[in-house]
């Protein structure tokens, strides 16, 4: 169940990588900002986090598009965009972390876990509402995303760019328009996943972003870089393996995702569901 949330965590990152070959190392920081956004709106204006999901998606998507036009076109032209974007977004992540520390201080924030009401009883098993709500929202958002990517015109264009930039351009698709759209959606998804991070991951503070980035990478690499369906699979694998490790070998649980990541990188560098196209 938590697996679907993790899928949502990874999806935005994967979309951006898939479309632009840009490694967004600040992904976790956008998640963190999303969490703070929801926290602040709840504290100040009593906006329910579920409502924040919608607001933040729009706000962060616009922010993402701004960032896209600021950086990405120049990056993509360079000799080694993948490596440069890695370093560039590391810088962006430092900036976000510093600004967030100035704005929000260093204390971790978390929501009252009972804010969505008591546990739900389903099939004779109790599901705490603070996990159930993220699950439902993740499910809805993932479904919407897939509808968007596979059934709509802009989605088709984005998939075309993922397949081959040059061919897409040759077919008259406006690369920048759709890339920026994908970038915006990617950042928006990160913020939305962030709204629920305090419930699933525990307290969130400005430095949490880095850990979340690493987890996101583990998820999308397990699935497969650049493949949206793989991300869901990666999220599920991550969620389940984390649960199993905590049950049987709790003291080793924190390195489990990394071991899994390395093993998969070495055995199948393109991810479990990858298509296996890679150059040496």
């Amino acid at each position: 169940m938590i697996g679907l949330f993790y899928a949502l965590v990874g999806l935005g990152l994967n979309l951006i990588f898939g479309v632009m070959k840009v490694v967004n190392l600040a992904h976790g920081d956008f998640l963190m900002l999303g969490a703070f956004g929801a926290y602040v709106s709840y504290q100040l204006w009593h906006i329910n986090p579920i409502v924040s999901v919608l607001i933040e998606f729009v706000v962060f998507a616009l922010l993402g598009m701004l960032i896209y036009f600021g950086f990405v076109p120049r990056l993509v032209q360079s000799k080694d965009p993948e490596m440069l974007s890695l370093i560039l977004f590391f810088g962006v992540s430092q900036v976000i972390e510093a600004l967030a520390t100035m704005a929000f201080g260093v204390n971790p924030v978390s929501f009252n876990v009972n804010m969505f009401g008591p546990s739900l009883e389903l099939f004779h098993q109790a599901y705490p509402s603070y996990l159930f709500v993220p699950f439902v929202v993740s499910l809805v958002l993932l479904a919407l995303m897939f509808f968007f990517i596979y059934k709509t015109k802009p989605g088709t264009a984005i998939r075309a760019i993922m397949g081959s930039r040059d061919e897409a351009a040759a077919n008259g698709i406006s690369i920048h328009r759709y890339s920026s759209l994908a970038f915006g959606i990617g950042i928006g998804l990160a913020a939305v996943a962030g709204v629920f991070a305090p419930f699933v991951v525990g307290g969130v503070d400005p430095t949490t972003g880095t850990d979340l980035t690493t987890i996101s990478f583990a998820i999308i690499v397990i699935g497969s870089l650049g493949n949206p369906i793989g991300t869901i699979f990666g999220g599920l694998v991550y969620g389940i393996s984390m649960m199993l490790m905590q049950t049987y070998l709790p003291s080793w649980a924190s390195i489990a995702p990394y071991v899994l990541l390395i093993l998969i990188l070495l055995i199948r560098p393109s991810g479990i569901l990858g298509r296996g196209v890679r150059h040496a």
């Binding site: 993948e82 490596m83 890695l86 990478f217 390395i262 070495l266 040496a280």
Partner: peptide, 19 residues
């Protein structure tokens, strides 16, 4: 790890340090 390239190597290397 050297079999990996670019971002894959960087991320894999980060993961190994955590391990």
């Amino acid at each position: 790890l050297l079999r990996l390239s670019g971002a894959y190597f960087a991320i894999g290397n980060l993961a190994t340090s955590q391990v």
